[in-house]
Design a protein around this nucleic acid. Structure first.
Lengths: 229, 229, 229, 229
DNA sequence: TATGAATGAGTTTTCATTCAT
DNA sequence: TATGAATGAAAACTCATTCAT
């Protein structure tokens, strides 16, 4: 069952070494995305405060001044990065839910797989780390993320669980807690990838495999009869 | 079964408003800890880069210059904060394991409760957030944390799981993955407390209750016969 | 006695909101003046250094780049503004003097009235403020203004006074000082209009009335018999 | 009649070349005034916008950072300069008025001489230029100056004139206008000193002599019987 | 030891000027 | 001619670190 709706993340920043090309080239349309993509990389590596706009500019292949043509401040650029990474994926998840009238566990399974794929393959995986790190400095951003991502995501999962329970597909678990228990390994995976992968020469985390085990455990927890065939 | 070995975190920073109080001669030995405690607060709120040593000094009730009598740089102070919060708790956990020859699940249960308590009640809960945020800027610190905390913690849990499997107490789960699935909700709890608690007027997370549900789920997953009495 | 020779100041800047008006083909000859007029407004409000060429361009209804088609630098544009406002008025004053063989005090009266009108009604009133403010940064401009405006203006008045004294129309006042005492209230009026009019909710200065009183005082000072009928 | 109450202006900035003295010396008390004095010089020469804090710092013999220990921004430093130059002189003038029950014209004469001396000999002479130049950018400052200096000064002169008229010492002139006509040559003198003195090789303006002539003219205008002995 | 005034390198931000279109 | 995206030098401001006291 191929997923026709691939995970979304900004395109890679252009290589800044265009050789001896003209001093600059008109890129009106593409510039903002390129800058956001470069900024995402730098923020991901350094965090907000330690990120230098000079480096963002260099990776985007533009000058420092150009950043200010598109974003009025470092802070706004940061917010743009967060928004750019979040919104498409969120919409994608909601589309998936709306469309699919599957058995509840199958739907959960697909959601897990989708998020696992995003975490494993896209740069959006750094967003949680960034938001977590800067929640204290940008309460407004924390509130935005809480409202638009966490609350929506949790609500979506809660509805799914409740539906399963109501239909007798799931055991009557504590919905609020279970939502968080479902999400936690995904969060751990995202964080691992952005903070500890390859540290000390360890193997990269196999997110898909971890989430598959998570799914198996969830089946035991949620589905009444335990080991399905 | 009271726990005679309470969770460990640095003492609270002294109120900086000593005013013209009865000039209590300052015990010199306490200074470093006071500074570390104040630094932990500030790093927790702002992150490493955005934390200002001026604020640390103010909260510790000393002058900026004094910080440098005890710590050669901001970076070393940061590391001291991490170490101060981690090591005692780690030793406590290892002591617990070594001493108690309980049934495996009961031991796991006790470990979960202990960590939950640390997360819910001590300032050490901010450490994961700090380390995660700065892993990119301080690879050496990330490696230290990986080696001393994550690897040790994971190893400890893996040993516990393996022992349970070997003894026939646990189903033969994938040990590597299950370790992470056990830890993930604890990480989520710690992060929630330091980044989203009270954001947007939400209720504080009830860590103990969440971890209790987690424990129940784990029992279903790990223990062959499901709900024991 | 109508003045056939009205006060001179650059035309108002065109409204920049041409919208999609009936694409009137732009008369090319007018561009530089439009830019100078817009620049005069912006320099008047902000001073030279704080004036942004972006704002000048916007008010002139052109793009930033276009400014450079007509003026090689901000500095040259500034000088063009000064010149554009000064020269016509200066020529007008000299024409007036040359033409009119009136009694000396009547001529002085007409000069005062003319300058008062320029100050009260044209944008050229900001020139003294601009030149004064930037004299330190543009010694060359200060010298130009001193030579072309101040010296000429002072010389003209000195000649007038001397003629009056020689003819026995005026008392033998100190010419050099009196010239400055005649000019001072005009300068004050110009400055008031551009810096303090309406500040703190005050009434706009009635330049004509002030200068009329000035004229009456001057008559007492200059004319031997005091109150003429 | 010696004036025991000399004109007030900040002390000159210290020479920054202390030879090979220690990197810096503790000057807690004196620093702010030294900085204000240096800033006054630089603002006077360049205007607010074109003044570089680096230059202020250099002239004050301190580093850039030190400025920010005492003044939170360039703008606040500017205001401090204005206030420092204005307030002492204003108080001095009011003291003079309050103390002296002389004939009205003698009092006016003394006031003129005092202001002339301040203009001729102190750095406070640049204040009008600075305020005029930046009134557009700092409306709040313009309002402050209008309220605290202009209104107070004008009110003080108006009261003096009115008293003279009421006592029959002065002719019944238009008080509002005459106040401005009295002030105008002082303003011109201050501006001349700061913008045109020595431009193009001219002689410095002899402020005292100019004001003496002004005084003579005022006597003709104000005092009923004309030429007193 | 302790202080905190002073430093200065480093970062964000602005804006006159250039130049491909 | 005209545009406006792009540049980059310059300037305000910050803050870890030093050091005279």
């Amino acid at each position: 069952m191929p997923d026709p709706d691939p995970p979304v993340s900004p395109p890679p920043a252009p290589s800044s070494s265009d050789g001896d090309a003209p001093r600059w080239r008109r890129r009106k349309g593409a510039r903002p995305q390129e800058i956001v993509a470069a900024a995402m990389d730098v923020f991901a590596e350094r965090g907000f405060a330690a990120a230098r706009l000079e480096e963002v500019a260099a990776r985007a292949g533009v000058s420092k001044g150009t950043l200010y043509l598109y974003f009025p401040s470092k802070e706004e650029l940061f917010k743009a990065v967060i928004r750019a990474a979040i919104l498409p994926n969120l919409e994608r998840a909601e589309r998936m839910i709306a469309e699919v009238p599957e058995p509840s566990f199958a739907l959960l399974e697909r959601l897990l797989a989708m998020v696992a794929e995003v975490i494993a393959t896209t740069r959006a995986a750094v967003i949680p780390k960034l938001v977590i790190a800067e929640a204290g400095n940008f309460p407004e951003l924390a509130a935005f993320y809480h409202r638009e991502v966490i609350r929506r995501g949790f609500g979506l999962l809660a509805a799914l669980l409740q539906r399963g329970i109501d239909r007798g597909e799931f055991r009557p678990v504590n919905v609020e807690h279970t939502v968080r228990l479902i999400v936690a390994p995904l969060l751990l995976s995202a964080i691992w990838r952005t903070a500890f992968d390859r540290v000390d020469g360890t193997e990269p985390l196999d997110v898909a495999a971890l989430v598959a085990t998570h799914r198996d455990h969830l089946r035991r927890v949620l589905v009444a009869e335990g080991d399905a065939p």
